[in-house]
Design a protein around this nucleic acid. Structure first.
Lengths: 145, 145
DNA sequence: CGCTCAAGTTGTACTCTGCAACGGGAGCGG
DNA sequence: CCGCTCCCGTTGCAGAGTACAACTTGAGCG
């Protein structure tokens, strides 16, 4: 097997390990926010609000799933539904202050965990690793994986 | 923010994207084998058989979860349970020929997908990316994430 | 108006998961 | 040998996450 082949095998294996671990640890690390909820809140912050359908499309989730997730987030007071004056079918989802705060907390905790794991990496390796990941995900995006 | 900080932010973000995507796509890509089942079969192949408790400990799963997964894999004919002659509490799990075959098929399909995404990467980048991932996961392992 | 489409909700079912309780065997001190 | 404790695995139960299908409501258009 060529060196490239070996490297691809390794990448596949390590990515799988990471995915499995992320899935397993997400619940334990952030009991207040599942990986999906975290992602949805992040999306709302980034876009400063959007529709439920947009979330469903962007994350390849069923609209019923998003509906229930949003219901839970609303019950928890992290998200607000605002009727869209231009289209009464639509509800615009917005982070509440509490939602913004929780999101910031979880992000901070995640950041600390990553930082600890990466603390002894040389800066050059960090930036290269970051570039590789972006590149990989951009390509996977295009493949609509 | 320093360059290292920025890189860490990016790594965190991209790893999250990857984890979410892996979770979402696993079911669609390999209907016959969930990510967990795939991992368990892989472990059995690699170790040439082991106990259910070992799987649970290694993947931070509850033993009941492993028990049910193994039951399903056994029903599907991919795994065999063999009583341990030295300790009647223990059952040694072994891949069947069918299990080995399915595992090889799914691995092959995953490999093709990765290969396609990485086909235009220079070999040097591939090997470095692989090294980074191994290093990251090894550290996360130590943190028992 | 009436048809069609879009946004969200709800009913239903299934999977994955963990916790708790249990059964059965192993190992050990008396 | 007996009884206690620990370990391995199963099962009952509950909860989260998800998808699919049917439905409600509203928009757009001829």
């Amino acid at each position: 097997m060529s060196a490239a082949q070996t490297a691809i095998e390794t990448i596949q294996r390590e990515m799988t390990i990471f995915a499995r671990r992320a899935r397993a640890s997400a619940g334990r690390m952030h009991p207040e926010l599942s990986l999906v909820s975290y992602t949805l809140l992040g999306h709302l912050e980034e876009r400063d609000g959007c529709r439920a359908t947009d979330l469903a499309a962007h994350y390849a989730l069923d609209k019923s799933t998003v509906s229930r997730q949003v219901t839970a987030l609303e019950r928890a007071g992290l998200v607000e539904r605002r009727p869209d004056p231009e289209d009464h079918r639509v509800q615009v989802l917005q982070l509440t202050d509490a939602g913004r705060e929780i999101l910031a907390q979880v992000t901070q905790r995640r950041r600390a965990a990553f930082q600890e794991r990466l603390e002894d990496w040389p800066e050059e390796d960090l930036t290269r690793f970051a570039r590789y990941l972006e590149r990989y995900n951009a390509r996977a995006d295009a493949d609509s994986d």
